[in-house]
Design a binder for these strands. Structure first.
Lengths: 149, 149
DNA sequence: GTACCTGCAAATCTTTTGCACGACA
DNA sequence: TGTCGTGCAAAAGATTTGCAGGTAC
């Protein structure tokens, strides 16, 4: 299995299944449903939520299968995971990745445009030769409501 | 026990012990040694490393005691913890807190001056009323060496 | 003396892994 | 048919918690 292939972000579950096949993988029920869930998701979902959603269509999918398939899809570059503060990782399609603010007090999250990281990324690259990944961990802090109390 | 008191960062273990006492806490051997370890630390240490270091002076300190005391000190505002990528949290004196870059490939960390976050913090505050905590989670990415390969 | 701390063991939560069986190509 | 995927159960790692006994003040 190759490392994060720079694929041109597949736009449907069917395309990802083809990609899987072309990498020697097999198309199974749980993979098909997992992908449908991910393509239908509007919000971040953690592994358990994804498993629950998959189970609505395909009961008794095991969490280990969910984790293994999410890992597989991450290696194909189709899926990424993000850490929002403490607690379980959240997963989504790589094409939908973006930076987040995460309130450590109430758990609220806010989406940010990628360019908010521009200056920081440039500085990190210039001073340390370091390439910033702005989407893997949320920026923690306190939201407006929680700052007042 | 009060929430994160805005104390004027104590400069020695003895000062923190006084602070503890003034909050109804007691000065115990494990607390004294834990503080000495933290004041002597030049690098980030995770809970296990701290426990090992404490055990050199005071054998058989239990990890649960280490965790409980670290938590206590965080509530007093004396200690903070930082997450460097996946893996255990690292602890240090709040007065020594600063942002980090963390290489997801080799695990190397780089210290950053706080002002590298200035623009991002300003934007988050202006657009979302959000106060960024730049030290709680490291900025992930790839260091210069790992970017080449 | 009493409230607070500690050790010990067990529980927690998320994620990973070993193994034998079942299914896609 | 042979390889790959799955379920199940158990392990893993980091941290938390309940409880009974010990200690600072």
């Amino acid at each position: 299995m190759p490392d994060s292939a720079p694929t041109s972000s597949p736009a449907s579950a069917a395309e990802v299944l083809n990609l899987l096949r072309s990498h020697g993988g097999r198309v199974t029920r749980s993979r098909r449903v997992l992908l449908e869930v991910l393509f239908a998701a509007s919000e971040h979902m953690n592994a358990e939520e994804i498993g629950a959603e998959v189970a609505r269509v395909e009961p008794a999918v095991n969490m280990s299968t969910v984790y293994r398939n999410l890992e597989e899809l991450q290696q194909l570059g189709v899926v990424v995971h993000t850490h929002l503060g403490h607690g379980p990782a959240t997963y989504r399609l790589a094409s939908a990745a973006h930076p987040h603010l995460y309130c450590e007090s109430c758990g609220a999250t806010f989406h940010l445009p990628l360019d908010i990281f521009e200056e920081l990324s440039d500085t990190a690259l210039r001073t340390h030769g370091f390439s910033v990944d702005a989407t893997h961990f949320a920026i923690p802090g306190r939201c407006a409501a929680c700052s007042q109390s």
